[in-house]
Structure formats: C-alpha cells, structure tokens
Simulated scan of single mutants.
Amino acid sequence: MKRIPRKKRSLTAAEQGKTSDQSFLVVSYATCEAYDLEALSSDLRSGGLYRPVFEQDAEVLQEMEIVHMRATYQIEEEPREIFFFPEGSVVFWNVSVLERLSVLKTIRAHETGSYPESMVLEEVEILHYLNAPNVNKTRFNNGKIQFCGKTGSALEKYTFSNALALSVKLGIWEAMLSEYADSIEFIHDDMKKRARIRISRSEVLQKMGALFALRHGINLGTDLLDTPDFYWDREDLEVLYRKTCNNLSITQRTRVMNEKLNHCCELMELLGTHLNDLHHVRLELMIIALIMIEVIFELLHFFAR
C-alpha cells in the first residue's frame, strides 16, 4: 500500500547540516508515542549544554506542556533551539546533524513506546528558514520561512514546529500502515484462491487492535483534523500554521490515511466474521459427532441386552 506522493525533502542538505544560501534548517523527528518531559528537561539541563528559554512567550508554551530549549554555548549569531512535544516529536532549529543525533540518543531514556531507529531517521520533515529584516512581518512563501527581524519569536517558531511535529508524526503512521498492509497482503491471495486462510482469530483481534490504535492517534490523539484552540485568538499565527500544514499536505494525507484504514478495517471485519462462522461450524460438527457417539453407545447397549 503506497503512501500519497508529496513534495520531497532535501535529505542531503539536512544530513550535511548545510544550506546553499543564507538560510537555516528546521528539522523534525517523531521518535516515540510520548515523552517524560519533566525528566527529559532535567536531563538536558544537567548536561549544561541546553537551557530552557525564559522569554515572555515561554509561559504560554509551558502551559501547553511544550519544552523549549536553547543551546547554552552560542556558535554563531543564529541560536540553536529545540522544541519537544509531549506526543513524541522533536523539532530542531539550526542544529547540525551530529548534534541532532546526540540529542536523539539522550532522549531515548525518556521515551514511551519508542519507534524503530531506522523509521525515525527515515521519516524526517525539513524546512528552510531565514531572517529577513526587510520584510514587515513573518511569512511562509514557496516552502520557506521568512522571519521579520534578526530571528523569529518563540511563538512563531512554535507555530512552525507544531505543523512540522504533526507532519512527521503522520509520516510515522503512514510508514506503520504501509507495513501493516504488507503484513496482511497474503490474505487477499488466500481469499481469491479460496485457499485456507493462514491467520487465527487471536491474530485477527490483535491486528484489529493495531488498526484502532492508529485511528485513535490520527482522529482523537492529535490536531490533524482541526486547527488547535491555541490559534483561535492569534490570527497571524493561525495563517502561518495553516500555510505550513497546506505545504506539508497534512489534510490530504490524513484523509487518504483514514480511507486506507477504513479499507483495512472492512477487510479485518470480514475476515473476523468468516473465522467466527468457521468456528461455529466446527462447534456444531463437534456437537453432532458427540450426539452420534452417544447414539452408537445406546444402540450397542440395546443389542447387548
């Protein structure tokens, strides 16, 4: 089951941590189902390399349980910043690939439901941003972020990070659904050939559970279907958020994911019904066999008398 094609990311540039112009990179990963943000923040602070961002906007992010940290030691004028989201996504601003991998290794100890490392490194979202003092307000055009002034505010960077975190999380779910579809492909062949279906009722139940976990994450556990309440009274940020989500095709990808999930659910429900019918038939045959055995014993007793 193939995922919907969308704009390819500049993976080579991201891996090298370089850009061809004066722009910087913002890179997002989804590493697990959830973070222990309190322990994670404490661990990073104790190392002395990162510190929480204490700005006017920082209180708003803390209320939403978002951890926003900045590198303690400045290498260049543009700061190196990291946003950690409680649902298991992390967004790096102007952080080199070696530093990103080091942080990803550190946060492993504070994860719940970690994803395979190969999947984490493959499903990456990348955007370019630059500081443009000549523009009158921050904007998102042609897939590139342009901040008004020397650097973006905490809330502006959070807005773009929020969209990137959702997109990379959706990318992980797309990969998981693709693997799931591959794992049940043999069922179609068995059904077409009218062969014995090589799956048990318990395995069907397990696979149904995996499907509903995906549906719950997409439709109830995230803001993929609607704009978060945070933006309702922040129109400028809402515009940036919507433009970023549109660029990342989040709405379209979510719709396609739900359609694929519905197809898989219909298949598993049909299979579950079929296996239940077979189970009932076996029970009926066993009951008939027991009745026949009892009749045979009664006949033997009758003729013996």
Rank of each mutant, 00 (worst) to 15 (best):
R3C: 04
R3G: 10
R6L: 03
K8I: 14
A14N: 15
A14I: 09
E15S: 05
K18Y: 01
K18L: 05
D21L: 01
F24N: 07
C32R: 07
D36G: 03
L37W: 02
A39M: 14
L40C: 06
L40R: 08
L44C: 03
G47M: 11
R51S: 11
F54L: 13
Q56G: 05
D57T: 02
A58D: 12
V60L: 09
L61F: 01
Q62V: 05
I66Y: 07
H68I: 08
H68M: 11
M69G: 03
T72N: 09
Q74L: 01
R80E: 03
I82W: 01
F83A: 05
V91I: 10
N94G: 04
R100T: 02
L101Q: 12
L104Q: 03
I107K: 00
E117P: 02
E122D: 09
E122P: 05
E122T: 10
E123N: 15
V124H: 09
E125N: 15
E125I: 10
N134R: 07
V135L: 12
K137G: 14
K137N: 15
N141I: 11
I145Q: 06
S153A: 02
Y158T: 01
S161D: 12
N162W: 11
L164N: 10
L166S: 11
G171I: 03
W173N: 08
Y180C: 12
A181P: 01
A181F: 07
I184L: 07
E185H: 04
H188R: 06
H188K: 06
M191E: 14
K192T: 14
K193G: 09
K193F: 11
I197A: 12
I199S: 12
S200K: 13
S200M: 12
S200L: 09
S200Q: 10
R201K: 14
V204H: 01
K207W: 14
A213S: 15
R215Y: 15
G217L: 11
I218Q: 03
L224Y: 02
D229R: 13
D229G: 06
F230L: 05
W232R: 12
R234E: 12
D236G: 07
D236M: 11
D236Q: 12
L237D: 02
Y241K: 07
Y241M: 09
Y241Q: 08
T244G: 06
T244C: 14
C245L: 10
C245Y: 02
L248Q: 08
S249D: 14
I250E: 03
Q252A: 03
R253D: 03
T254N: 01
N258I: 10
N258A: 09
L261Q: 14
N262K: 10
H263Y: 08
H263S: 13
C265P: 03
L267T: 12
E269N: 15
L275M: 15
L275P: 06
L275W: 13
H279W: 11
V281R: 13
E284A: 03
L285W: 06
I288W: 02
A289R: 00
E294A: 06
V295I: 04
V295T: 03
F297V: 00
E298C: 00
L299W: 04
L299M: 02
L299P: 02
L300S: 01
R305N: 01
